[in-house]
């Protein structure tokens, strides 16, 4: 890591000497990386470099996989999320997650999907309609779907389903949103819509996005981290990473010499 953070920026999260394994496979090696509040941090790198594993550690989704374990720490507001007295459920409510493949709940309507997170967490949702409207407005779906709130979710396009998944996550009012290649299955127009949404959300949420697309990372991120073979090679302002990277491996990757 090459960057020292300016004093006016607040760290929302920090990975501290974080290691992760799947059985014998050492997927993440001593990652130390800040996540700055109300900024977009992009994680880039070739396939298998540990990007997704890293973001799954940020909300303790990594440990859901059989045989997965971690060492080191992840801090959320300077408190470890791995402490024995911390309920992973509460971590996941504060650090929401969007997956590569849209995963709305089948057999539920649009409205039910948007408020599903609240219901699943046992919250008393009194005004379902206003919660659904607010969340759908944040992802620019309200106008498109306000007449179809009771429609089966399977009838939406893939892009609408992904935006719906983002709305479902936002309905829980998380503090951090991690996105694991949210545009991987979308066409360029749909991708640009998701990127607009990310731009719109940065004032309210801290965002970490994993992406294969360096152009996307350059467009949406304030900070960029380059991972390679499970190690953090370089982390800096996105402008610096994409114009004057310090490490030759970063330069080789962003100029397309490998990856």
């Amino acid at each position: 890591m090459t960057r020292s953070d300016p004093p006016d920026e607040t760290e929302k999260m920090r990975a501290d000497c974080l290691n992760a394994w799947f059985g014998e496979l050492h997927a993440l090696k001593d990652i130390t990386l800040p996540v700055i509040e109300n900024k977009v941090t992009a994680v880039i790198g070739p396939s298998g470099c540990g990007k997704s594993t890293f973001v799954r550690c940020l909300n303790r989704m990594h440990e859901v996989t059989d045989g997965a374990r971690t060492s080191g720490d992840v801090l959320l507001d300077n408190r470890s999320i791995f402490r024995a007295d911390v309920d992973p459920v509460s971590v996941r409510q504060r650090v929401g997650m969007i997956f590569q493949r849209p995963n709305p709940f089948p057999a539920m309507t649009v409205r039910e999907n948007v408020v599903a997170g609240l219901r699943l967490s046992g919250a008393d949702v009194r005004d379902v309609d206003s919660v659904a409207e607010d969340a759908l407005r944040q992802v620019s779906l309200w106008v498109e779907l306000k007449e179809r709130l009771d429609a089966p979710v399977e009838r939406l396009s893939v892009e609408q389903q992904q935006r719906l998944c983002i709305a479902r996550c936002l309905a829980l009012q998380p503090e951090v949103v991690v996105m694991d290649e949210p545009c991987a299955l979308l066409d360029p127009i749909a991708t640009s819509r998701i990127e607009e949404i990310i731009h719109g959300l940065r004032d309210r949420y801290t965002i970490v996005i994993v992406t294969h697309s360096m152009q996307q990372a350059a467009r949406v991120s304030d900070y960029t981290a380059f991972f390679y073979l499970g190690e953090l090679v370089e982390y800096d302002d996105a402008d610096v990473i994409f114009t004057k990277p310090a490490d030759s491996r970063t330069e080789d990757y962003i100029t397309g010499r490998f990856g």
């Binding site: 996941r92 929401g96 997956f99 995963n103 599903a116 699943l120």
Partner: peptide, 28 residues
């Protein structure tokens, strides 16, 4: 699909709530 359970868990649902409110709904 496992992705459905994963989505519920990522939303902060416990295992039994995922089973009761998501899986059972899908197989209903």
């Amino acid at each position: 699909p496992e992705s459905v359970r994963e989505a519920a868990i990522a939303l902060g649902a416990s295992r039994w709530r995922t089973t009761l409110f998501v899986v059972s709904r899908v197989v209903h």
